[in-house]
């Protein structure tokens, strides 16, 4: 029943909000940057169609739906429409989010394919040997529209300095070696990290 689907809105700022759903939305990661791109994925289609929402990006990863909008409309108003879209499409006859097209099938496919290979190689050759010094590792999940999606593990998961590693370290190395990468998205559940290299403890 719809009312059994729990959704928590976690606004990042006026333009970005993460919605945590009590059940899986999509087994993988997909990112949509336009209504046209969302075609075939009812959840993303519905979110892009929210009146006055001016949604610019929808990212679905496991139980998380992250929505970015250009409007200044408060999340209380847009969030309700996002919640309805999640509940209704999860209960629909077709999957809420379609599997990604096979690599190379879309106009951006070959670019992402190539980027994926290069990022994977960079992670193996440079990034992971570095983070391994602190017992961590970084897993490349996907590259979509030149946006790298990654997950941190080991000593990096839940580490108090993980965002420094991500923003100052990994992004910096990517900028040096693969400047075509537009952005990096961390989908790690840092709250579940049981063995962080640096544990936060100081008030």
């Amino acid at each position: 029943m719809d009312q059994n689907i729990g959704i928590t809105a976690q606004p990042v700022d006026a333009h970005k909000c993460k919605f945590v759903v009590s059940e899986p939305v999509f087994a993988g990661v997909r990112r949509f940057t336009s209504a046209a791109e969302a075609e075939g994925s009812p959840l993303a289609e519905r979110i892009f169609a929210i009146p006055g929402g001016f949604v610019t990006e929808v990212m679905v990863s496991g139980e998380n739906v992250t929505v970015t909008k250009a409007s200044e409309a408060p999340w209380q108003a847009v969030g309700k429409a996002v919640g309805s879209a999640i509940r209704e499409t999860l209960r629909g006859a077709v999957p809420a989010v379609a599997a990604a097209a096979p690599r190379g099938a879309g106009p951006a496919g070959p670019g992402d394919d190539e980027l994926y290979e290069r990022v994977a190689d960079l992670f193996e050759q440079e990034v992971n040997p570095m983070v391994a010094r602190h017992g961590g590792f970084v897993e490349l999940i996907d590259v979509q529209e030149a946006v790298v999606m990654l997950r941190m593990g080991g000593g990096c998961q839940g580490c108090g300095m993980a965002s420094v590693t991500l923003r100052q370290g990994i992004e910096g190395v990517l900028a040096q070696h693969i400047p075509e990468v537009k952005a990096v998205v961390d989908i790690t559940d840092h709250g579940a990290g049981a063995n962080p290299y640096f544990a936060s403890s100081k008030k």
């Binding site: 440079e126 570095m130 983070v131 010094r133 602190h134 961590g136 300095m161 420094v164 590693t165 100052q168 370290g169 990994i170 910096g172 190395v173 040096q176």
Partner: peptide, 10 residues
């Protein structure tokens, strides 16, 4: 940091 040698400005 683990990346210090690679990114000394950062």
């Amino acid at each position: 940091s683990t990346f210090e040698s690679a990114l000394p400005d950062a």
